[in-house]
Design a protein around this nucleic acid. Structure first.
Lengths: 338, 338
DNA sequence: ACCTGGCACTCGAACATGGCGAGTGCCAAT
DNA sequence: ATTGGCACTCGCCATGTTCGAGTGCCAGGT
């Protein structure tokens, strides 16, 4: 096992490298951190750390830089989550409080995260699966044509056209609307299917076809809308990545345009716990030189969606994690209020 | 005035430079295009063109590159719009035909444009100002709390909460809903205000306050939603910009994140005609080394929104303009069908 | 009046050279 | 186990040199 001091050396290397973006040597290390030992000792420790795969040299006789494995150890064992300063917290709250609707909340959140972390921010729209129904509306546009509108507790609105197999009178529409609402308002999307299952039976035979069609559309909406949307921002921060630009930045921009990739990226994170994926731990190879910090957020105690940032593996993990966690909390509060 | 041949030389310079991305000299020019004159003559012509400000040398004794003014002349006088090949046209149609809803149409369009032009694509959502109302719905959520839902002919749905000054019965809700719809369905948003102006008067005194509030919210929605949304894509294509990366790409990425800037950019274009803004012609200085090609598109004969691309001033103007125009047409068709 | 070939000149790109300094690994001493 | 010393490695940078594309100008030809 690695001695206490060796870990301390690794921590120092990570911190210095994150700060300077340059390989760090033994001498510079002893000067900047008072480790209480000489450069030579540090050199020996470095040799061991390198042998174990935690650090590497970009080329012979240069300083060392942490490997993915090194960052992993740093994040798991050596670093905490740095809480934000209270002015920062206040700024977050003020900024998010100004939001007028869901789109605005998500938009502000993404800008906020990008600004705080100076990295690329990704915010997933609150998922419908765990949301609850605020209202279901049914409108008759034509004798055999209805519009179904679904409103969630997170303020999202979905609408679908329904072509009925048979004309469906206004009173029937009102009837169905009332019964639907009485059953599903306040319930979770996941529970809706079994709540409306027996609804067609309570209608006249001639209307059952239409009722079934409406229900089918409703359920379909639930499923389809589980394919989630997201918003990204702060891509300009990618320009701070490195000096070997085009090669690094291109695949990242490409990956960011593939919403599917990003959703998978966020999805991999376990539930609401904060997840850090470092370098090659990311499945998508365009993101092999980036790290992803993600966490769930939600209006209640449970997470309804995820948010996070994508940045270079050489990032300030404690600070980033702090910002991500803080933003997630405040967004949760905002959603709970509305 | 510039002689025919000098214009021909300019055209050749633009074409070569766009192709090779390298300053083009007199010798190379005569080799690649059969201008029928010697390099020396071309040199003289170049000297004139430079004096007039159409071309410039990056440094002494290097080839010439077109200036913004040179591109402007090229676009105005020397280049046409290159029609797409028929396989390309078919591909566009097939790709767009698969769209399921408005978001999908816009999403597909942006990807398509980015792919065709290999540049950054921007597509504005169909504007509400010129849209017509498909349906207005009013729901009673609580005795003094209504929800207003607005559905446009382009498939967009907007919803607002309305807190009433006084309780408002179900029958009144139904009444207002019916009257509202009979007046505004099928009408343009711009015409709505005067169509509903006198509506409160026809209600009982006790309900007038609520009716006015509802109408105010409706009008407010119209105004607010005139602040339009847009979608961008193909940012990865920015990496093909130049070799002097970070400096060029950064301000562009920043500008692209400012939706306001982009909307203004598109908005400047006159109506549905195709507009090309080259380099410094763009007001925003982050975009001083880019050109913007934009055109209006719409479901009918009138433009409801704009779409376009942002790329380096050194771009294939005829090809880009062709792609932009073609995509706009097909999107218009798709919207008209739905 | 215009075009052309020739010529001297300029200047950036590419490559080579060499000194500098940071950093390393190893070793003998404590 | 830690330390100071020392020889060595290697990338970086500044300098120097060559090479070639491109230019401007001029004198001669049509």
């Amino acid at each position: 096992m690695l001695s206490e001091r060796r870990l301390e050396v690794l921590r120092a290397i990570v911190q210095d490298y994150v700060g300077t973006e340059e390989p760090v040597g033994s001498k510079a290390l002893t000067e900047r951190h008072n480790l209480g030992v000489s450069p030579a000792t540090v050199r020996n420790d470095m040799a061991v750390l390198e042998e174990e795969g935690f650090i590497a040299q970009p080329h012979t006789s240069a300083g060392r830089i942490p490997t993915d494995k090194g960052y992993r150890l740093f994040v798991d064992k050596l670093a905490g989550v740095k809480p934000l300063s209270s002015p920062e917290r206040r700024a977050i709250q003020n900024f998010l409080d100004g939001a007028v609707d869901l789109d605005d909340v998500v938009g502000r959140t993404v800008r906020l995260l990008a600004q705080l972390t100076r990295q690329v921010a990704i915010v997933q729209y609150p998922s419908l699966t765990r949301s609850t129904v605020r209202h279901v509306e049914l409108l008759s546009l034509a004798p055999a044509r209805l519009m179904l509108v679904l409103i969630t507790d997170t303020g999202r609105v979905e609408q679908r056209m329904v072509d009925c197999p048979a004309p469906f009178g206004e009173t029937s529409v009102a009837d169905l609307r009332a019964r639907l609402n009485s059953r599903v308002v306040g319930r979770r999307f996941a529970d809706v299917p079994k709540l409306v299952q027996d609804l067609p039976e309570s209608f006249e035979t001639e209307d059952r076809g239409t009722v079934s069609t409406v229900l089918a559309t409703l359920l379909e909406t639930l499923v389809e809308e589980t394919e989630e949307r997201l918003m990204i921002g702060g891509t300009a921060n990618l320009t701070r990545f490195g000096h070997d630009f085009p090669l690094t930045i291109r695949p990242v921009l490409e990956a960011l345009e593939e919403q599917v990739v990003l959703l998978k990226l966020l999805g991999e994170a376990k539930d609401s716990a904060m997840t850090v994926r470092i370098g090659h731990e990311n499945a998508h190879e365009g993101l092999n030189s980036t790290s992803v910090v993600a966490v769930g957020y939600g209006s209640g105690d449970e997470a309804v969606a995820k948010l996070g940032v994508v940045g270079p593996t050489r990032m300030d993990y404690p600070g980033t994690m702090g910002a991500v966690r803080a933003v997630a909390r405040y967004v949760g509060q905002i959603l709970a209020e509305s």
